[in-house]
Design a protein around this nucleic acid. Structure first.
Length: 825
RNA sequence: GCCGAAGUGGCGGAAUUGGCAGACGCAGCAGACUCAAAAUCUGCCGUUGGCAACAACGUGCCGGUUCGACCCCGGCCUUCGGCACCA
């Protein structure tokens, strides 16, 4: 055998695998399937270590499941629409498509150099017409089902990106991509009605037992369900009823004002009637000029302006002044909030600031609150109602029920569930995305582009000069069209879709990527999907994972898939850090995968990244650690080289009973390792400990490096299983060793090894002897002996005798094959 | 503020169901091989005391349960992540 030369053998095997198409998968209803999926990347141009980690984890699973006998689907593709391509066009004059495709080519090359077992025939690229045609088709499906609509609304606008953003894409009031401060704009935009599915998206989180709990909790919080009462308060001077929503109906007798959002639809009418029109308008203008950060920070000052107009509390006929405020959100509940200063801290501060009356309607048990002595609201949800007409004297629970019943009986209110989740704003005023397939006609209004005319293609005659808003709007050939209904001249929608739409269904397209008639065949999708194991970063906990769940539920309702959830199991990998912080160009701590692979080979890179930390924890990159992984592979190579002749010439079957005690011990270690590695991969995703136990096996193997007369059958057994167990982690070196030493077939198509129960058993075990819980000695005893025999062995021990002399043995605790604890006084 | 996760040697981490704390690796130290170095192989490697056998201490802090606690319970501290005027 020659020296271990990773670069040579890796290139060789990558070429062979590609040539023989070994990773191609076909549907086969007679075999159990396994769908392993890593989140597809944005084609930024180069893989980073996060990708390497992501794909290494997925590849181990895919290869392992294949060896276990599953029909494994393991595809890869590119989330290829988006701003960076367009920015490159603006900056360098490159066409977004050229920029994207050349980046894809480079990243695919890098992925191939990692030795990943993808079925490249199934690749999808969301920016290609054969894909976005179906993205548009799905948009129309949503439209036809009443789930896509256009409305004028105050939306998030990023000036730097020149486009609107979804709520999920605003992080701390800033654009998720460029960190610019997001402002509100009143625009007419397309939305998907994800709120229709809020309830089921929340409820079905229970089905996702294979997801990390924290991700489920994050989604639960994001959806934010609350129950309460919505009721109407009459405003006689306006001739209107104003609806308000509260989760504390028990406090309604304490209402002393009504707070409206600055964007509330009645603000204009209020101005007309109030006599303070100019002041109110000035206040509203000031509020709207504030950024989201200023407006939504809980520390920021609550401000408002009294309108002099009032509403009537329908429960007790009390008058309450209407205030316009900076803290009520227009798009949650009804945009109007009852003010109950004595039982809500924010209302308390607001009322104190503006001299608004406070009424106590709730008293804690065994205590009497007096307004003059209070310095803050009483917000505990416990106590007895006072000043609340027929509800006085009731506890909160009874009062809540009674008050809501009353509102419903008298017809001015209704129980209601509210969600924090808002509809998904999907319009983007950008070029490099899937055009929204809608036409506007002066006579017919909003018309869908007929299905046989899909895709609505992106035009080529586009000007990307910086600052130009919505490049598509400038392409006359794109905008001008005829109405599919009446044939008159019409205009095309010039907005494209949020790229998160493209990524909300790609995992379904992989099951049938070349279908030209429908997005995917029902039989195929129901065979392969849902994804058995999805792997990706925690940063998608809400965005992509919530949108994909929504899509799947709509497609299920449309009869296109039979399953309610797209991803049965989710693994959220940790980040790859260097020197304790995230790798970034600005910090200058980036380690390039290409460089590492060039120096040590892909196997070393994969091994290190899987060994250095558990998959779900952050991993600190260590150049010395990489050296260690490389050393281990050389060590494997060398021990097999030492035994080359024995391995090649030994039979597969041999007489195990003829082994020496030392050889039996090696065989014991082998089978314990098989058991441990199998469990670590299959049950626990603990690849780091799986690798460490393989290292222990190799260490044990080295104990025989100078034993020329060691049993050849055993050596072959150890070598064969060592190669098989390492194969999912380091596919190239194991394939090379397999071809040299075994010769037949590929290591990757071998059956995953089982372990021999007999070999795992041992005649003797070491047990610990404790006195009062402290370890005092260790002895070898026969395994699986009964309790009394263990006690006898402990009592016979010299150390135990010495240390218990003159003391009384209270009791003895025996744990089979582990320990005896002698309790003495 | 609310919700969640984590805290173990010089470092990454292990201990799967309450049962030997520190597997495996990195770094370090020593030996073998070598003219020498590198590479490789072998051994040592939590702290303190001791020639040693061994003893005491030790999993963020304080307390509890237990024969026995990194693990369970109560109360804190620190770090990280998510949400944050949602009425």
């Amino acid at each position: 055998m020659e020296k271990y030369m990773p670069q040579q053998i890796e290139k060789k095997w990558q070429a062979k695998w590609q040539e023989s198409n070994v990773y191609k998968t076909e549907m086969d209803a007679s075999r159990p399937k396994y769908y392993a999926l890593e989140m597809f990347p944005y084609p930024s141009g180069n893989l980073h270590m996060g990708h390497v980690r992501n794909y290494s984890i997925g590849d181990v699973l895919a290869r392992y499941k294949t060896m276990e006998g599953f029909n494994v689907l393991h595809p890869m593709g590119f989330d290829a629409f988006g701003m960076p391509a367009e920015n490159a066009a603006i900056k360098n004059g490159v066409k977004p498509s050229d920029w994207t495709f050349s980046n894809i080519d480079n990243m695919k090359r890098q992925q191939r150099e990692m030795g990943l077992s993808y079925d490249w025939d199934r690749e999808v690229q969301t920016c290609r017409q054969d894909y976005y045609r179906w993205t548009q088709w799905l948009f129309q499906l949503f439209y036809k089902r009443g789930l896509a609509y256009k409305k004028k609304a105050y939306v998030n606008w990023c000036d730097t990106c020149g486009t609107v953003l979804a709520n999920e894409q605003v992080i701390d009031g800033q654009c998720w991509r460029c960190d610019s401060v997001v402002v509100k704009k009143d625009l007419s935009q397309w939305f998907l009605k994800i709120t229709d599915y809020a309830d089921v998206l929340l409820k079905d989180l229970d089905l996702l037992q294979g997801w990390p709990e924290r991700v489920r909790i994050m989604q639960e919080n994001w959806i934010g369900r609350s129950e309460g009462l919505e009721f109407e308060l009459e405003a006689p001077e306006l001739g209107e009823k104003i609806a308000a929503y509260t989760t504390r109906p028990d406090t309604v007798y304490g209402i002393t004002f009504l707070a409206l959002a600055a964007e509330h639809p009645l603000v204009e009418k209020i101005c007309a009637k109030s006599g303070k029109a100019e002041e109110i308008k000035a206040f509203v203008k000031k509020v709207q000029s504030q950024s989201d950060i200023e407006r939504t920070s809980s520390e920021s000052e609550k401000e408002g302006i009294g309108t002099g107009l009032y509403v009537v509390n329908p429960f007790n006929g009390n008058k309450a002044e209407i205030w316009i405020t900076n803290y009520v959100l227009a798009d949650y509940g009804t945009g109007a909030v009852i003010g109950v200063p004595s039982e809500d801290q924010r209302d308390w501060m607001f009322a104190t600031k503006y001299g608004i009356e406070k009424i106590i309607t709730l008293q804690p048990k065994g205590q009497t609150l007096v307004l003059e002595e209070m310095t803050e609201a009483y917000t505990d949800k416990a106590g007895v109602l006072v000043n609340s007409a027929e509800f006085s004297g009731m506890d909160i629970k009874a009062a809540m029920k009674g008050i809501m019943d009353k509102a419903e009986a008298e017809g001015f209110g209704k129980r209601r569930v509210n969600y924090r989740l808002r509809d998904w704003l999907i319009s983007r005023q950008r070029y490099w995305g899937a055009p929204i397939p809608v036409i506007y006609c002066d006579d017919c209004g909003e018309v869908l582009v007929p299905e046989d005319q899909l895709p609505v293609k992106l035009p080529e005659d586009v000007d990307f000069k910086q600052g130009s808003v919505s490049p598509l709007a400038q392409s006359k050939s794109f905008v001008n069209c005829t109405c599919p209904k009446c044939g008159k001249p019409a205009r095309r929608e010039t907005d494209t879709m949020d790229t998160f739409i493209c990524s909300s269904w790609y995992y379904l397209r992989y099951t049938d990527p070349h279908n030209e008639n429908i997005p995917f065949d029902k039989d195929k999708v129901n065979y392969w999907a849902p994804v058995d194991q999805y792997i990706g970063g925690i940063e998608h906990a809400i965005l992509h994972l919530l949108y994909s769940r929504f899509f799947t539920k709509v497609l299920k309702d449309a009869g296109m898939v039979d399953f309610p959830e797209p991803f049965t199991n989710l693994l959220t990998q940790g980040m790859v850090l260097k020197d304790g912080s995230k790798m970034s160009k600005s910090k200058g701590n980036v380690v390039s995968p290409e460089e590492i692979i060039g120096k040590y080979g892909a196997d070393t890179a994969r091994l290190f990244i899987l060994f250095a930390a558990p998959v779900d924890r952050d991993l600190d990159w260590s150049d010395q650690g990489v050296e260690g992984s490389f050393r281990f592979l050389r060590r494997v190579w060398r021990i097999l080289e030492i035994f080359e002749d024995k391995i090649k010439n030994a039979p597969d079957e041999y007489d195990v009973s003829s082994l020496t005690p030392e050889e039996k011990e090696l065989r014991h270690v082998l089978h314990v390792t098989i058991q441990k590695v199998t469990e670590d991969i299959k049950e626990r995703f603990m690849f780091n400990t799986a690798i460490s136990s393989i290292m222990e096996l190799v260490n044990a193997f080295y104990g025989f490096q100078n034993s020329t007369d060691v049993n050849a059958g055993l050596v072959r057994e150890v070598a064969v299983n060592l190669m098989k167990m390492l194969a999912p982690f380091v596919p190239h070196i194991t394939e090379e060793l397999w071809s040299v030493l075994i010769g037949e077939g590929s290591v990757h198509t071998q059956k995953w090894p089982g372990f021999d129960e007999e070999a795992i058993k041992t005649a003797e075990v070491e047990i610990v002897l404790q006195i009062n819980g402290k370890v005092r000695d260790r002895i070898m005893i026969a395994s699986n002996i009964d309790k009394s025999a263990m006690e006898e062995a402990a009592k016979a021990n010299k150390r135990v005798q010495e240390l218990t002399e003159g003391k009384t043995i209270v009791k003895m605790i025996c744990v089979p094959n582990k320990l005896v604890n002698v309790v003495v006084k």
